[in-house]
Design a protein around this nucleic acid. Structure first.
Lengths: 352, 352
DNA sequence: CCCGAGTCTGTGAACGCTAACAATAATCGC
DNA sequence: GCGATTATTGTTAGCGTTCACAGACTCGGG
C-alpha cells in the first residue's frame, strides 16, 4: 500500500556521492571529471560521465560557491526600461558577462534617489554578487555611491568621472560638439538646445559641449530649454520654440530659432510634432538633431540626424573593467573607458 | 616593516562565528537574531546587532542556500532589447520578484533558435535558479521548451497556450479584433495587414484576429504583407501598399488600400514614412493603426492609433505563476493568465 | 520548596562541494 | 630490475549556515 509513497519522488537531486557510487569511484574523482582535471583515466572519465548522464546530475552551485568563495554572479543596477540606452547597455553587458562565465542579476530602479540605489545594492549584496555595474547617470546617485563602503568592486556607466570610481562612458561632450558643429556648418547663426533634466550627468555634458562649441564659434548662446527625456516634454519645448522661429520673438530678446539640438531622440520626436502642428517645415525652416539614435529615429518625419552611442561596447567595457577588479584584484579608482559617439546625419538637418 | 603586511586586509569577510565571539554568544544565537526568531532576549539581540554593525557582517548567501536548499533566485530568458515588449516585461517582472524577496538573473538571446534557448537555460541552471520565465514568443523555441525535462518550474510569456506549460500572455487575438473593428467602423471596405514574422506566435495571433474580424464582417481579406518587426520592413511594406491606395492596383486583383493594421508600432512607423514619401495623407487617404503603444507612438506623424499591452502586469503575473510552483509546489500545466489589451485611438485612424 | 511549562542559549551534525594530502599503481632512466 | 618520478585515485577536512536537540534558567501553582 505504501508502494506509491515509497516510489514517490523523494526527489532529492542526485549528489556527487550518488554519481560516484553509480560509477564506482570516489566523489573526488567525479569532481575531477567535472572540472576537467587532466589526471583522470579515459575509461574512468567515461564511466563517470555515463553515471552523470544517467542520473541527470548537476553540480550544486551553492555548495560550490561556498567552498570556492566565488559565486560567479555580477549585479547590475539599471533604471527605466523606456530609456533606450540603459536597456541596451544591460543587454550588451549581460552577453559579455556570460561569455566570461558569469551570471548577471539585475535590479531596476523606478526612482533614482540615493536610498533607492542603496536598497538595490543591498539586495544584490544579499544575493552574493562579486561586483556590480551601476547604470544610474544621476549626480545624486553617483555621489551616494562614493560614500558607500562595499565589500565588492563597483563600476559605473555614464556616472561621470569626478569621483574615484572606475567607469565607462560615451563621450557626451564630444557628441554634443559634433552635432552642434554640424548644425552651425549648415549656415545657422546659432543652435538652440532642448536639454535633459538638470541632475543627469549626460544632460549636463551635452549642454557643456553645445555651449562650448557655440562660444568657440562666436555664436550667441540662447537659453537652453529643459525637458525630462520624454517625448511629451520635447513637445512642450517644441511649442515654446515654434513661437520663435524665423521671425524671432516679438521682443527680439534672443536669436530666432533656425536650428535645434535636442538632447535625446524621444524629445526630438516631441519637438518634431510641435513644429509640424505649428506648420513649420523641417529641415526647411528649422534644422533638428537628436541624440541616441534609437531604432525609430531613421523613420521619424523627417528622418532624424542624431548621435549614435555604441551601447553594446559600453556594456562590454564595463564588464571588462569590473572583471579586472573581481578576478585580478585591480584597484585603480581612476580607470576610465571613454567611447566615441558617432554622428549620424539624416534628413532633419539637411535638405535632401 | 611587516606592519603593512600584517595590517593588510587579510580580508576574509567576517563570519557568524566572528560576530558570535564579539557579542559573547554562540553562532546559533546570531543566526536566531538574523532570522528574527522570537526567543532571544532583547539585550542579547542588541548585543548581537551591535557586533554585526561593528564588523560589517553580512550573511553568506551560498552557505545559506546550501543548507536551506533555496537560492531565492529566479531566471529570465529574454530576447532583443530593441523590442519594447520584452524589455518592459523583464523590468516589471524583476520588480515583482524583488518584492517577494527573489533575485532575478537574466539571460538575453541574440538568436531564437532552440539550441540558443537551451544554452541559456543551461546557463541559468548552473546559476542555481529555482525557476525560470521564458520570454521567447517563437513557436520553435517554445516547442523545444516542452521537450526539456527541467528540475525546476518554467513559465512562458507570450508562449502560446498549445503546450502543457503554464504561461501568461496578452490577448493578441482580442487586440487585433479591436483594431480591425475600429478601422472597419471608420467606413473602410476592408483592412490591410502588415504582419510580423511567420513563426512568432504574437504575429500569428494578430493575423488570426484580423482575419476573423474581416470574415465576420463579410469584408474581403486581402493578402497580408509580412515584415520582421523592424521599421525598415514596415517601410518596405508601406511602399508596396502605397501603390495600391485608392486607385487600386492596375489589374484590380484586390481591394484598394484605405486602412492598414500594422502588427507593431515600429513597422507602423516605417509604413508612415513610406506613405509620407508617396505623398499620401494619413488618415485622410489611409487610416493606420499599430500594436504595442511604444512611448513614441503618441508623437508619430500623425499620432498612432494602437493597442496598449500592460507589460508590467504581464511581468507581475508571470512571477505569481512561477512562485506558485516554486513555493507551493503547484503543478497544473494548463494554468494560464490572459491579460486584456487596450485600444488607444489617436489621429492616425481618425480625422481629427 | 519542588515540578512542569515556558524561555533562552549552546552543541553537534549536516548541506554538497573543493582543496590538500596520502596512497597506490604505472612508467622511466640507467 | 631498482629507485625516482609521474599518473591515478581515495581520504579527510573544512567552507558558513541552519536544523534538531539538549541544557540551563525563569516563573507560577500546589
Amino acid at each position: 500500500m505504501s508502494q506509491a509513497a515509497e516510489n514517490a519522488t523523494p526527489h532529492r537531486a542526485p549528489t556527487m556521492a550518488d554519481v560516484a557510487q553509480v560509477a564506482g569511484v570516489s566523489h573526488q574523482t567525479v569532481s575531477r571529471v567535472l572540472s576537467s582535471h587532466p589526471n583522470v583515466r579515459d575509461t574512468t572519465r567515461a564511466e563517470v560521465l555515463r553515471a552523470i548522464e544517467q542520473l541527470g546530475y548537476r553540480r550544486n552551485s551553492s555548495a560550490r560557491a561556498l567552498v570556492t568563495r566565488r559565486t560567479l554572479t555580477l549585479g547590475v543596477v539599471a533604471c527605466n526600461p523606456t530609456l533606450f540606452g540603459p536597456a541596451s547597455t544591460l543587454f550588451g553587458l549581460e552577453e559579455a558577462a556570460r561569455d566570461e562565465g558569469y551570471m548577471v542579476s539585475a535590479v531596476t530602479l523606478r526612482q533614482y534617489t540615493a536610498s533607492a540605489l542603496e536598497d538595490a545594492i543591498d539586495h544584490l549584496s544579499n544575493g552574493g554578487v562579486e561586483g556590480i555595474v551601476v547604470i544610474v547617470p544621476k549626480r545624486e546617485a553617483v555621489a551616494a555611491l562614493a560614500g558607500l563602503r562595499l565589500p565588492f568592486p563597483v563600476v559605473t556607466v555614464e556616472g561621470g568621472h569626478d569621483l574615484p570610481i572606475p567607469g565607462v562612458s560615451v563621450d557626451q561632450d564630444l557628441g554634443a560638439r559634433m552635432v552642434t558643429e554640424h548644425l552651425l556648418a549648415g549656415g545657422h547663426p546659432t543652435v538652440w538646445h532642448v536639454a535633459g533634466p538638470q541632475d543627469w550627468l549626460e544632460a549636463e555634458a551635452r549642454i557643456k559641449g553645445w555651449r562650448a562649441t557655440l562660444e568657440e564659434a562666436g555664436a550667441e548662446v540662447p537659453p537652453p530649454l529643459v525637458g525630462d527625456w520624454t517625448a511629451l516634454s520635447g513637445y512642450r519645448a517644441g511649442q515654446e520654440l515654434a513661437g520663435r522661429v524665423a521671425v524671432g520673438s516679438a521682443r527680439r530678446r534672443s536669436a530666432p530659432v533656425s536650428a535645434v539640438f535636442v538632447a535625446n531622440d524621444q524629445m526630438a520626436l516631441g519637438v518634431l510634432r510641435a513644429f509640424r502642428e505649428a506648420g513649420l517645415s523641417v529641415p526647411g525652416q528649422v534644422a533638428i538633431a537628436g541624440f541616441d539614435d534609437i531604432p525609430a529615429a531613421e523613420y521619424f518625419a523627417p528622418p532624424l540626424t542624431t548621435v549614435r552611442q555604441d551601447f553594446a561596447a559600453v556594456g562590454k567595457a564595463s564588464i571588462r573593467l569590473l572583471l579586472d577588479r573581481v578576478e585580478s584584484g585591480a584597484t585603480r579608482p581612476d580607470e576610465r573607458v571613454v567611447i566615441d559617439p558617432q554622428l549620424i546625419i539624416r534628413n532633419s538637418s539637411t535638405p535632401s
